[in-house]
Design a protein around this nucleic acid. Structure first.
Lengths: 165, 165
DNA sequence: TGATATTATCTCAGTAGTAAGATGTTCAAT
DNA sequence: ATTGAACATCTTACTACTGAGATAATATCA
């Protein structure tokens, strides 16, 4: 923590160091951009009667085939209670079913039913198109640039920060 | 784990167009980066007993002075019921108080109490520092570049999409 | 072989909000 | 003044989860 002892100005709140100001600005625009994007995307999901997490499960199973609940959980980043709850809800609607795992009796697969497969197969293209549209504020080259930067940012941030108490 | 390492199903989904694939990738890394960042930041807020929204209110009042509830609401992007609830909760803890608006009897100001001012004044610097650290996966120049791209992306996405369909 | 730790899922109480509509206030045009 | 639209906030019912702990199965190792 580099608290460089600059003379405290009693005027307005102490202005942060430039490096911190840059980071704060990025923090704000990152949050706003993500919110603006997901608000658009989720609006189209709500019309289909799916939450973001439900859609994410269907999509994961659609593209990867049956997955263990734990695998889905890690992929869509919900709690263990959450994945049970979500799969229950999708199962009640007949979109997903649990299957035994032959090699581990604790574990269960989640798999799309015919009905679930039909549903996600129908709405995924529109979802992808909505994302393409939502991102159209940037050219493709800019999108790739942003992707690289965000990948780097996200990976670094995901690493447990140095054990500085 | 060995689920027949061979082709799971021949149902390889139709690959999306390149432009859509680019947008999808950006969508994923944007969500992941934002999540990794806010998870770090929020962890430090939880230690202080504040949610993200509560902190955002305190910060807004700290930097702008008393604000009408509606102004705070629009600034931190919660529902009208949400802002009432949040200000109630902060008021119960003695961090914020409501004040009459002399020119409009419908409206109320939210203002920091001494206690609230002391709290936010104490934790804001650490918060800013946590953000600086969370962003340190990018150089300052890269952060500025990312900020520009995200600003452009966010602004475009926030505009109501053309009323086509 | 057990003893112990780990893992996978499930249960259930709790939480941080949202959505829709109610209430009281202001404003503009009669 | 009077009506009605627009507003600012509040109330209530609900929701989509989270977190902690329970249960059962598997892995590790003395």
């Amino acid at each position: 923590m580099t608290t460089t002892a600059t003379a405290p100005q009693a005027t307005r709140r102490k202005a942060p160091e430039p490096a911190t100001a840059t980071a704060l600005k990025l923090f704000v625009v990152l949050a706003r951009a993500q919110r603006a994007i997901t608000e658009r995307i989720n609006a189209s999901l709500v019309e289909k009667g799916l939450t973001e997490a439900e859609f994410a499960i269907l999509e994961a199973l659609y593209h990867k085939g049956p997955l263990l609940l734990g695998e889905v959980q890690r992929k869509i980043l919900v709690s263990s209670g959450g994945i049970t709850f979500l799969v229950d809800r999708l199962a009640e609607r007949g979109l997903v079913e649990r299957q035994m795992c032959p090699s581990d009796r604790r574990a269960r697969y989640a798999a799309l039913t015919k009905k679930g497969e039909a549903l996600i197969g129908q709405i995924f293209p529109a979802h992808a198109e909505a994302i393409r549209e939502a991102m159209s504020g940037l050219s493709r080259a800019e999108q790739k640039q942003a992707t690289e930067l965000l990948k780097q940012l996200g990976l670094a941030a995901a690493i447990r920060k140095p054990a500085a108490e």
